[in-house]
Nucleic acid binder design. Sequence first.
DNA 1: GCTCATTAATAAATCGTTTTATTTGGAATA
DNA 2: TATTCCAAATAAAACGATTTATTAATGAGC
Lengths: 354, 354
Amino acid sequence: MTLGPKNVTRPPVVKSGAAISLKQLAAHLELSPTTLSLVLNYAPSANSIPQETKDRIFSAARELNYRPNYLARSLRVQRTHTLGVIVPELSDGYSAMVLNGVESELSKQGFFYLTASHLHRDDLLEKLPQVLIERQVEGIIAVDTPIRFEPSLPIVNVSGHQEIEGVTNVILNHQHAAELGIGHLYDLGHRRIAVIKGQTFSSDTEIRFDSILKAARKRNISIDRNLRGQMEGESPSPEVGYHATKKIIATGEKFTALFAFNDVSAIGAIRALEEMGLSVPADVSVLGFDDIYAAAFHNPALTTIRQPLFEMGSLAAKTLLNKLAGKKNGSSKAVLNVEPTLIVRQSTAKAKIL
Amino acid sequence: MTLGPKNVTRPPVVKSGAAISLKQLAAHLELSPTTLSLVLNYAPSANSIPQETKDRIFSAARELNYRPNYLARSLRVQRTHTLGVIVPELSDGYSAMVLNGVESELSKQGFFYLTASHLHRDDLLEKLPQVLIERQVEGIIAVDTPIRFEPSLPIVNVSGHQEIEGVTNVILNHQHAAELGIGHLYDLGHRRIAVIKGQTFSSDTEIRFDSILKAARKRNISIDRNLRGQMEGESPSPEVGYHATKKIIATGEKFTALFAFNDVSAIGAIRALEEMGLSVPADVSVLGFDDIYAAAFHNPALTTIRQPLFEMGSLAAKTLLNKLAGKKNGSSKAVLNVEPTLIVRQSTAKAKIL
DNA sequence: GCTCATTAATAAATCGTTTTATTTGGAATA
DNA sequence: TATTCCAAATAAAACGATTTATTAATGAGC
């Protein structure tokens, strides 16, 4: 293991020099801006221009480090190659993962994006799309965010469940997810299952809960009223899962498994259970949702329903870019489904006989 | 707990209507664009214009939903109110936290930002600043990212350690951090301490390691060569900490405490230790770094050196905006220090007698 | 009745590109 | 010799705003 030279400051590779405009470059070459523009953009009409002139232009552009002003170009060609992305907030792992997928796709296609967080605030939910539109984004990707405006440009909503003209929703197959989760617990012998429901502001809250109830009913399991927890508060920390679980325990109702709304709340739930002297998974199995990074390395490692968040992000981006490319003709689906996966780790085990 | 109506699609609040330009609005009012511009921007020279006319303008703008085109305005006034932010990647919690702080400050001041990930790739490290500059960002915030270009605009580097003209580095007081960490372990009686060193591409790797050695030496502790682990590979998962720890254990050299490069690697380290039948903290104390969300809810909860990542992000943003505002005069410090905090949780305990 | 200031507005230039339409000089054609 | 065509380039308009300079009409002061 070599330590290597420390605090190396590599010589910068790119020389700077004040920005130079096309007009200045043209003056320098004693040519018109038109000619330079045609040549530099490989316009078809530039093939009447002799190679020698082209070479002069290219090499001067390189030497004087000419960089076209994207603002001016965008204004003229009416395309910004920029999207807006609206998320609840950046800190919660979920958004960051989706964003990661979005970025990976956009960067492939030369697009950039402006990020904005709405923090669940109504005023921002209304204002942010407006200011993004002022900034001439070509489309908007919303992540777990309610649409409070009439879309005047293409929109893809990750985990959106509203049916709105012009909005494509990228959503998880929740029925399948619930089948996987409840099926897994059922197969392990669990019959008394607690469920933690998400915050009211999460788009997936209702459908996830309903799907779970349905999957349970299918197996003749009913989720006792006392075993239904509710996540409350804004915090994106495990605390909300912790408190919800404490409340369930306080009812005295017995259960052998707990299906959390997501991994973060599952982690809080485990803490609450262990504080009460209950061991996971020996006494109670805990099932998470999402499969965030922390899930695999929690102790015990979380069994969870994986949402392909990165893929959902890149799918959203891909879809939006397609919408932009295929003007009009791409009537584009209103819903795109992605499939969940059951990831079995250490937080679930055979049910204890009550 | 009420379930509430499901799948509510609230009526959109903002009506759309195709975008209208200033010129069109002016035509509609039978006034010149100049007049509208002066009035709408509250220009001083507009106070000769009678209130009645102003009212007509304002109400027409509202009714026809006039939104100034930010591109056109930016081009004219030569300000974009946009920054570029370059991060290694988005998924790793660290960048997301810093970004969160950046955003919170920028949104206060009406700025937006374009995010770009360099993925530790040399070509991107050189290209990204260029394309951001083409897009007329007014400054760049780099996060844990080496500067490979001569700065032609204001730059703030979070966790940067290169001394470059025009670049302000926001850095943690590593000497203090090391004192806190080693001091804590020392006070618990630990004398044989393993240290996991960061990946070579992390800006903080060298200084953090050196500071730790120095703090140890000050207490007459030397860190055995066999107890120096190295994180290897690109992955932002705990796996790299896991493997580094396995290697240390394999040397057979005994130790009672381990100081990890960060929380993610600390989590991997704990897994490796437990796999070898060593209990944390009973047999080995593990100390993390950063205090990411997962730290508090890991099992055992991580004792860690907290970096105020959110604050570092907002400080970086604030500093950059100040640089932009105070043209020339703000000779602006080259280094801004922020202070670490020791957060004691459950992963450290009194040293076992060897 | 003349000058000057004020009010209410506008024309035109500008930001840095792209694009359409036009010009220029020479060579080929009839 | 006049016409047409082509190569090589340019002028000017446009994108949608802001800003500087200018105008036209009115009223005040002497």
